[in-house]
C-alpha cells in the first residue's frame, strides 16, 4: 500500500489525499442529505421512502441492542455506518483510495469509538459510578479491563484497515497479473466486504457503548 500523497500544506501540517477524499465524502453526503431532506412530506416519495427506510433500519438495529438509547446513539453509530460504507466504496472509483484503507483514519475512528464508550458511559451514570465498574467484580481485574479496552480499540482499527487495504491490494495484484477485466469479481467482493466491514465496525462500536451503559445498569440492579 502506497503512502498517501500530501496534496497541500496548512502551515506545518501536510493535508494528505485521504483527508481530501474524506472532505469530498463529507461534502457529497452533506449535499445529498440536504437535497433529499429539504421537502419531506407526510406522504413520502420513493427517495424519502428510501431515506426513511435506511434511517429506520439503523434506528431499529440500535434499538435491538439498547432499546431506550436509540435516539441518543443514532447520530454516532449511524454516521459510522454511513461514513465507513461510503469510504469503503470510494476505493471502487479509479484514482481514488478508500480512506478506511489508511491506518490513521481507522485509528481515528477507533479512538472516537473508545472515547464515545466512556463518554456515553459517564453521561449515563456519572464519572464516579462509571469508572467504578472497572473495579468490579474485583479490583484485581482492573488491568484486564484496561488491556481489554486498549486491545479492542486497536483491533477495531486494524480489522477495518487490514480488510480494506488487503482488498485493494489484492485487486491491484490481480489487475497487474491477470489483465483488465479479471478483477471485476473481486470488485463485487469489494462491495460486499465494504458493507460487511462497515456493519461490523458499527455493531462493535454499538456493542462496546451498550456494554458500558448496561454494565452500569447491571451494577445498579445488583445494588438494588
Amino acid at each position: 500500500m502506497e503512502t498517501p500523497s500530501i496534496v497541500f500544506y496548512v502551515g506545518p501540517f501536510g493535508i494528505t489525499s485521504i483527508v481530501v477524499t474524506t472532505w469530498g465524502i463529507m461534502l457529497l453526503l452533506g449535499v445529498l442529505c440536504w437535497f433529499a431532506t429539504r421537502n419531506l412530506s407526510l406522504i413520502p416519495g420513493p427517495l424519502q421512502t428510501m431515506l426513511e427506510g435506511v434511517v429506520s433500519t439503523m434506528e431499529t438495529s440500535i434499538q435491538s441492542v439498547l432499546p431506550d438509547r436509540a435516539q441518543q446513539l443514532l447520530p454516532f453509530i449511524a454516521t459510522l455506518w454511513i461514513y465507513i460504507v461510503t469510504a469503503n466504496l470510494t476505493g471502487l472509483i479509479p484514482q481514488l483510495h478508500s480512506p478506511t484503507g489508511n491506518l490513521s483514519v481507522t485509528a481515528g475512528l477507533a479512538v472516537l469509538v473508545f472515547i464515545s464508550v466512556h463518554w456515553f458511559g459517564i453521561r449515563n451514570d456519572g464519572i464516579r459510578q462509571y469508572f467504578k465498574h472497572y473495579l468490579s467484580p474485583t479490583p484485581l481485574l482492573l488491568p484486564f479491563h484496561l488491556i481489554s479496552e486498549i486491545t479492542r480499540t486497536i483491533a477495531l482499527a486494524v480489522r477495518l484497515f487490514g480488510n480494506i487495504m488487503s482488498l485493494e491490494l489484492v485487486a491491484l495484484l490481480v489487475l497487474l497479473v491477470a489483465g483488465l477485466l479479471v478483477p471485476v469479481p473481486l470488485l463485487m467482493l469489494h462491495i460486499v466486504e465494504a458493507l460487511v466491514q462497515a456493519y461490523i465496525f458499527g455493531m462493535l462500536a454499538l456493542v462496546y457503548v451498550a456494554g458500558a451503559m448496561q454494565s452500569q445498569q447491571h451494577e445498579k440492579g445488583k445494588d438494588l
Binding site: M1, T3, P4, F13, G14, I15, T16, I18, V19, T22, P99, N102, L103, S104, V105, A107, G108, L109, V111, M165
Partner: peptide, 11 residues
C-alpha cells in the same frame, strides 16, 4: 502502513 498524526487528528 504509515501513521500520520495530522490525518489522524483531522479524521
Amino acid at each position: 502502513m504509515d501513521f500520520d498524526w495530522t490525518t489522524f487528528i483531522l479524521e
